[in-house]
Computed example of a mutant assay.
Amino acid sequence: MPTPEMRFDGRVAVVTGAGRGLGRAYALLLASRGCKVIVNDLGGAINGDRPDTSVAQTVVDEIVAAGGEAIANGDSVATPEGGKAIIQSAFDTWGRIDSLIHNAGNVRYGTIREISYDDFKSVVDVHLMGAFHVVQAAFGPMCDANFGRIVLTSSIGGVYGNNRCVNYGMSKAGMIGLNSVAALEGEEFNVKSNVIVPSAVTRMAEGIDISQYPPMDPELVAPVVAWLAHEACPVSGEMIASIAGRISRMFIAETKGVYRPSWTIEDVAAACEGFHDKGADNPQVLDFGLHGHVDHIGYSFAMAREGR
């Protein structure tokens, strides 16, 4: 039998940064499956300057022309007031919010030594603070409705780092902490939160030599995000990567570690190889998952009690 189509009939989604690139692909796919979509985008340049509200409206027009339902929203995620207004637009229009996809972003390059504070803060305000602003505004209503799906956007630049992107790297790494807390606090209310770690060729790749890249269209990432935003998605508190057609789970792990009842600096130096050992022949990498905070402590306490 064919697999039933996963639809979003009756659902309402907010997608920030949905005017171009990845966000546009998310909005179009959700709408094609019956979702009502708030298309949020300032429509500016990649550094956030020169806003243009027609960018979001163009996506809305495309959705409506295909028989879907959508409205444009030009509020900024960078302020608490803007975040509230974005979420409120879903309630004003359709009386609910079911899924929130925070995709809005800007880029301002600079090394740690040279970046201006304004350029640093501009990126943090949109990516990281923007995520908090919209999540906080949506979280209460989702919990009250006993349903919600949150998808936050990190990056391999946030997980692994990258040169000249300290503002971006810090913001995308911070998304991991927000996601974990939202997943834990939402657990009893059927509110799931996950992170997408996407890679696609969009205008953010401007200036990069992509001549040797395999196909990396935003449409390769969109089904992963739609799955995370769907009511049937079973996971929460996870990071899912999507790059060039490959999907993987990313996670924070620990080595088994070593124990001593007391330590000197010299002891730590001597044990360095032991607590770095990932055990290629005998895997010792621990993945604690959503309740890692508690499980990390429990595992460490057990090692201390057992004296090993």
Rank of each mutant, 00 (worst) to 15 (best):
R149Q: 06
T255F: 05
G186L: 07
A253C: 13
M216C: 10
C35T: 02
A65L: 10
D217A: 03
E62A: 15
L228K: 02
Y213N: 06
Y26D: 14
A65T: 14
N47I: 03
T153P: 08
V151D: 02
P4G: 01
F288S: 06
A200C: 13
E231C: 06
A173L: 15
R203C: 03
T264L: 02
G186P: 08
P283A: 08
V37F: 01
S262L: 00
R20V: 13
M129A: 13
R260K: 15
T93M: 01
I176N: 03
G130V: 04
I297N: 06
S180C: 01
G292P: 05
N162E: 15
A226N: 00
H276Y: 14
I208C: 04
A27I: 12
L220D: 01
D281I: 00
V224I: 12
V224D: 02
D9R: 06
D92S: 14
D49Q: 13
T53H: 08
A145P: 05
R50K: 15
R308V: 15
A104I: 13
G68I: 00
V12C: 11
L128M: 10
F132Q: 13
P283H: 11
D125R: 03
T16A: 05
Y109T: 12
K256N: 04
M216L: 05
Y213I: 00
L29P: 02
E206L: 12
A90W: 07
I115T: 14
S122T: 14
L286H: 01
I112M: 14
I71L: 14
I38E: 05
V123N: 04
V123E: 06
S193M: 07
V12N: 03
S116N: 12
R96N: 10
A70H: 07
A205M: 15
T58P: 00
N190V: 03
H102V: 00
